[in-house]
């Protein structure tokens, strides 16, 4: 602690001056190298022999403006599916993770099924699950078969539920056994210990990877276009087919990135807030 009366020694002044000089130097160096890399990339891309063709067929502003409304309309379906699928997959993942932690012979079949589920659906490509669900189930011609959109969404929930279950399980297992011992010693039941002591700590710890998987889920929601519903990607595909120009795909891609930004922001905010609350007290 330096008091207001403290005079900084010559040695310390020298250190401060040195650190300031190196800070200025590293900022200048970063600016210079960024400029060099940027210029090189620009020259490389725009100077390429096919650049004019590429610009016309991928970055046509007129086509972009023309097709933006259609793609946005499709994106609304992606947004709705994203919200539903993310919430459902998180719930399913949490349920499976908790089931896998149950001990005792009574729960053996439950545990075995949950394990089988996480093993198989993490290995199964999402596209195949979507095809099986969206085309296979209607093929049964059962009464009250839900729409292809719902079936495609279910495929995403089932696949991502398996990933999220493993993330939740890692979180649950990272909570030290002494925490459970403390909870049980107070008379809390297994369920209460899980709910009030283990899961809150587990979820906080794995919040970043959970939300990371949710961002991945958001992209893969676009795969339901394979089953037929007109989402942003399907709308862009129609645009590409009608204009013989790839610009609609670029528009859809940019929209997906923009859609991901808030979720990524929330991930950082949630993580930071939890860390600060535990580290900073009140």
């Amino acid at each position: 602690m330096t008091t207001p009366l403290h005079t900084v020694s010559a040695v310390q002044q020298d250190r401060i001056a040195f650190r300031r000089r190196s800070a200025v130097r590293s900022v200048l160096l970063a600016a210079f190298s960024t400029a060099v890399v940027g210029t090189l990339l620009g020259v490389l891309v725009t100077g390429a022999p096919g650049w004019d063709r590429v610009r016309q067929s991928f970055f046509d502003p007129r086509i972009a403006v023309d097709w933006l409304p259609e793609i946005l309309q499709g994106l609304w379906l992606n947004v709705r599916m994203l919200v539903f699928c993310a919430l459902a997959a998180l719930a399913l993942g949490l349920l499976i993770a908790v089931l896998r932690t149950l001990r005792g012979p009574v729960f053996f079949p439950v545990r075995a099924l949950a394990t089988l589920y996480t093993y198989s659906f993490r290995g199964l490509p999402l596209i195949i699950v979507i095809y099986l669900m969206a085309f296979g189930i209607p093929g049964l011609r059962l009464q009250g078969t839900p729409s292809v959109t719902v079936l495609g969404g279910a495929a995403i929930v089932i696949t991502y539920g398996a990933y999220l279950a493993e993330v939740f399980r890692a979180g649950i297992e990272s909570v030290h056994p002494s925490q459970v011992a403390a909870a049980r010693s107070l008379g809390l039941s297994y369920r209460q210990s899980m709910r009030f002591v283990v899961l809150p700590q587990a979820v906080r710890r794995v919040a970043p990877p959970l939300l990371n998987d949710t961002v991945a889920l958001q992209k893969d929601v676009g795969l339901i276009s394979l089953a037929g519903p007109i989402d942003a990607i399907r709308a862009a595909q129609i645009g590409v087919a009608q204009t013989a120009n790839f610009t609609p795909y670029v528009v859809a891609g940019v929209l997906f990135v923009l859609l991901a930004l808030p979720l990524i922001g929330i991930t950082d905010w949630v993580t930071l807030r939890a860390a600060r609350r535990q580290a900073g007290g009140e």
């Binding site: 002494s178 925490q179 011992a181 403390a182 809150p200 700590q201 906080r204 535990q278």
Partner: peptide, 12 residues
């Protein structure tokens, strides 16, 4: 009641 060597308070 049981009190542990390492306190085991709930950190959250």
């Amino acid at each position: 009641g049981l009190v542990f060597q390492s306190y085991n308070l709930f950190p959250h």
